[in-house]
Amino acid sequence: MERRLRDCDEFFRYPELGHLPAQRRLSALAELRETGTYRQTAEEILIGAKLAWRNHARCVGRKHWRSLKLLDARQVTSADELAGVCWEHLRLATNGGAIQSMVTVGPQRVPGRREFRIVSTQLIRYAGYRNGDGTVTGDPANIAATEQAQALGWRGERTPFDVLPVLISAPDAEVRYFEVPRELVREVDLAHPDYPWFGSLGLKWHALPAVSNMDLDIGGITYPFAPFNGWYVGTEIGARNLSDTDRYNMLPLIADMMGLDTSSVRTLWRDKALIELNHAVLHSFRAAGVHLVDHHTVAKQFCDHAEREAAAGRRCPTDWSWINPPTSSGLTPTFHRYYDEPDLDVRPNFVKRADA
Score class of each variant (00 low, 15 high):
16 E>Q: 06
17 L>A: 01
18 G>C: 01
20 L>R: 04
20 L>N: 00
25 R>F: 13
32 L>Y: 14
33 R>P: 02
35 T>H: 14
36 G>L: 10
37 T>R: 09
40 Q>P: 09
43 E>M: 05
44 E>D: 01
44 E>A: 02
47 I>H: 04
48 G>Q: 03
48 G>C: 05
49 A>S: 15
49 A>F: 06
51 L>W: 10
51 L>S: 02
54 R>Y: 04
54 R>I: 10
55 N>V: 08
55 N>T: 08
55 N>H: 13
56 H>D: 11
64 H>P: 00
65 W>E: 12
71 L>I: 15
71 L>N: 02
72 D>R: 06
73 A>S: 12
77 T>L: 04
77 T>K: 13
80 D>I: 00
86 C>S: 02
88 E>A: 09
91 R>H: 12
92 L>D: 13
93 A>W: 06
94 T>G: 09
95 N>K: 01
96 G>T: 11
96 G>I: 03
97 G>D: 14
102 M>A: 00
103 V>I: 15
104 T>N: 00
106 G>F: 07
106 G>K: 05
106 G>V: 02
108 Q>H: 07
109 R>H: 15
112 G>M: 12
114 R>H: 13
115 E>R: 04
117 R>T: 09
117 R>M: 13
121 T>M: 05
121 T>P: 02
124 I>A: 03
125 R>T: 05
127 A>I: 00
134 G>R: 07
134 G>Q: 02
137 T>M: 01
137 T>S: 05
138 G>A: 05
140 P>M: 09
142 N>T: 12
145 A>H: 14
146 T>Y: 15
146 T>L: 06
148 Q>S: 02
149 A>Q: 02
154 W>P: 09
157 E>T: 09
157 E>D: 15
157 E>F: 08
